[in-house]
Design a protein around this nucleic acid. Structure first.
Lengths: 168, 168
DNA sequence: TGGCTATTTGAGACTAAGTCTCAGTTGCAG
DNA sequence: CTGCAACTGAGACTTAGTCTCAAATAGCCA
């Protein structure tokens, strides 16, 4: 069974378990999220749906994202910008982010010894951790190689620009 | 020389060095920031000034905060809420935050071995870090002791509520 | 299958945080 | 003291997100 189908299934189970309804809008959104985007924001999603001529209102996007977060399928994260981003979880455990400030790409990593050290710190401060959030901002390998050349648009930027064009 | 005076001085040096002007508004804001608040947001600052009958517009608050960040005296941080917070730097090096999700209090810590580990991770991923950002959310010692008792207002909450009252 | 009703949706008003504009004011170099 | 570049305040504007309410619909039950 492809991942998308499995995740749609999981979400529907969650909905039923919560006494909520399985609607076309909700299913279409989960399909979209799990078939393409790894990291995305609400606006990107809204735009993608518009692009595909699937009419879903902004309110529904936000409402569904909230449900997805509650269901544990999706996580809401800050990626150093002034609005939230979302990423899907699909079974993988917690991870943190390296964020390239030049091209905007996001590299994930998970490091148990980093996590362990955090727990030690919490213990020392008598703090009971429930969640954490680490972003390391900097320059990715590809951008560093390109050096100081006046930013020739890379993949991520091109996507963004295309999106901007279409949005107009 | 009291800290406040020293920081006002530093900021004025920065302004002069940048060909910018030393104004009453800028000086009043730096004095306010460095004499009381450790962590604060723009709105709190705006409110505090209003309270003291020092008329400073929202635009100037934001403009001055930007200058303070550029001067390195103040840092802009995310503390798990949907708007920015600021904290003053005053010579101390980088640190990260434990944030209590019950009372909102913020505990700072600095852990060299955590930082070292982060550098190792970056090296492995060929990523050149410039900055990072770690928040650990959870429950502080005081709140944990209070257990499940329906949140009796603690210091931080009281301050917030007072502020809300006055703002009306 | 068809009706009923609680849930959901869309449209758009609203809010919060922050930015921008522009006319009037002020710091400060000469 | 004067002139002008820099600054400020007021408020319009923007962006991201929330809320409201009437209309639509999922899905239970007969």
């Amino acid at each position: 069974m492809p991942i998308v189908q499995r995740e749609i299934h999981r979400f529907q189970n969650f909905l039923v378990a919560q006494g909520l309804k399985i609607t076309n809008e909700r299913t279409a959104l989960v399909r979209e999220i799990f078939s393409t985007h790894y990291h995305f924001d609400a606006d990107e999603l809204l735009f993608k749906m518009k692009e595909k001529s699937v009419k879903i209102s902004r309110a529904t996007i936000y409402r569904t994202l909230e449900l997805l977060v509650r269901s544990g399928l999706v996580r809401r994260v800050h990626l150093g910008e002034d609005h939230y981003h979302y990423e899907y979880v699909s079974g993988n455990s917690h991870h943190d982010h390296l964020i390239c400030t030049t091209c905007g790409s996001v590299i994930e990593f998970h490091d148990p010894s980093l996590e362990a050290r955090q727990l030690e710190i919490c213990e020392r401060k008598k703090f009971t951790p429930t969640f954490h959030n680490l972003q390391i901002l900097g320059i990715c390998d590809a951008c560093r190689r390109k050096g100081e050349q006046p930013a020739s648009p890379d993949r991520v930027q091109m996507i963004t620009e295309d999106a901007m064009q279409l949005r107009k």
